[in-house]
């Protein structure tokens, strides 16, 4: 474990992207203390102020204000809460569900594998967009629906990869050795195989978090995520799209942050895969 950590930290991508995500996490946790203004406080006298450096700014509003006079920077900081909650919870649950089923299918084989693999095939034949339209229609809007939709749609990603990794690991000599000693099957799965499959899961998890951030942004953009009085990046983008000619920064600021976040999760996943892979394959 210590060795994997060291390998991961020697990959510049991981350090850079991981650092960015860490900063974002700090901003989300300490949002009420870090945000310069109240993200909900409206002041029509201070409506659509441009960011610092442009004509007609007010001191203290670094990234300007929206048409209702709310501080863009403070809303971004508070918006990172929803983004990261969805990223961690949805991706985490999808990983948990997919990993469990993948481990079972890959290790116990037989009918367990047949059932799970069929399920995955059927699931993946159904286009994600249809499934999400149907799910949100059935579940209604709100952050819980967003998380549920992501988990229900994306667990298959983890399941497929974990299953094939588990099968590959099961061929390894250390597994045979553990079996000859007479360890119970379940124990071999969790204490021998899982640690070796873990790096793949971690890398995939990071990618999935990026996907979750985008999905949340899309759903809050169209107004199907959290209620409109909670600041979200997607909601800000929708608002910025509406007033694009009056205040482009209301669109551009959350868009840039969204892009950087997704990029960071992608690069982190990519870097982790690269750093952890050779150790697994020896």
């Amino acid at each position: 474990m210590r060795k994997s950590l060291k390998a991961a930290l020697s990959e510049p991508k991981v350090v850079l992207a991981g650092g960015f995500i860490l900063l974002l996490l700090i901003a989300a946790v300490f949002a009420p203390w870090l945000a310069p203004k109240d993200p909900l406080e409206q002041d029509l006298m201070l409506g659509t102020l441009p960011p610092t450096g442009y004509e007609g700014t007010e001191p203290g509003y670094w990234l300007g204000t929206d048409d209702l006079g709310r501080d863009v920077l403070s809303r971004l900081i508070h918006g990172s809460r929803t983004a990261l909650i969805v990223a961690f919870v949805a991706a985490g649950l999808a990983a948990l569900l997919g990993t469990m089923l993948g481990l079972l299918a890959g290790w116990y084989r037989g009918w367990v594998d047949v059932v799970i693999s069929r399920l995955v095939d059927i699931w993946m034949a159904f286009p994600p967009v249809l499934l999400s339209i149907l799910l949100v229609a059935v579940l209604g809007s709100g952050v819980h629906s967003v998380i549920a939709a992501i988990v229900i749609i994306d667990w298959t990603r983890f399941c497929r990869v974990v299953r094939s990794e588990t099968m590959a690991q099961a061929q390894m000599d250390y597994v045979t050795a553990a079996q000859t000693i007479g360890f119970p099957k379940a124990r071999i799965l969790f204490s021998e195989i899982l640690p070796n499959v873990a790096p793949v899961i971690v890398a995939l998890l990071s990618l999935e978090m990026g996907i979750a951030v985008i999905v949340e942004a899309i759903l809050s953009f169209v107004g199907l995520s959290v209620s409109s009085d909670t600041p979200t990046w997607g909601g800000m983008i929708a608002q910025g799209r509406a007033i694009i000619y009056q205040g482009w920064w209301v669109l551009v600021a959350p868009l840039v942050l969204l892009f950087l976040t997704v990029l960071a999760f992608n690069q982190l996943g990519d870097g982790l895969r690269r750093a952890l892979d050779p150790m697994m394959r020896r």
């Binding site: 985008i214 942004a217 899309i218 953009f221 983008i237 799209r241 694009i244 000619y245 482009w248 669109l251 551009v252 868009l255 969204l258 892009f259 997704v262 990029l263 992608n266």
Partner: peptide, 19 residues
Amino acid sequence: LAVPDFVWALALISVFGVF
């Protein structure tokens, strides 16, 4: 490849709609 269509659409709007 790394930029999803949602972000592309909005980036295009910012560039060719505003600037």
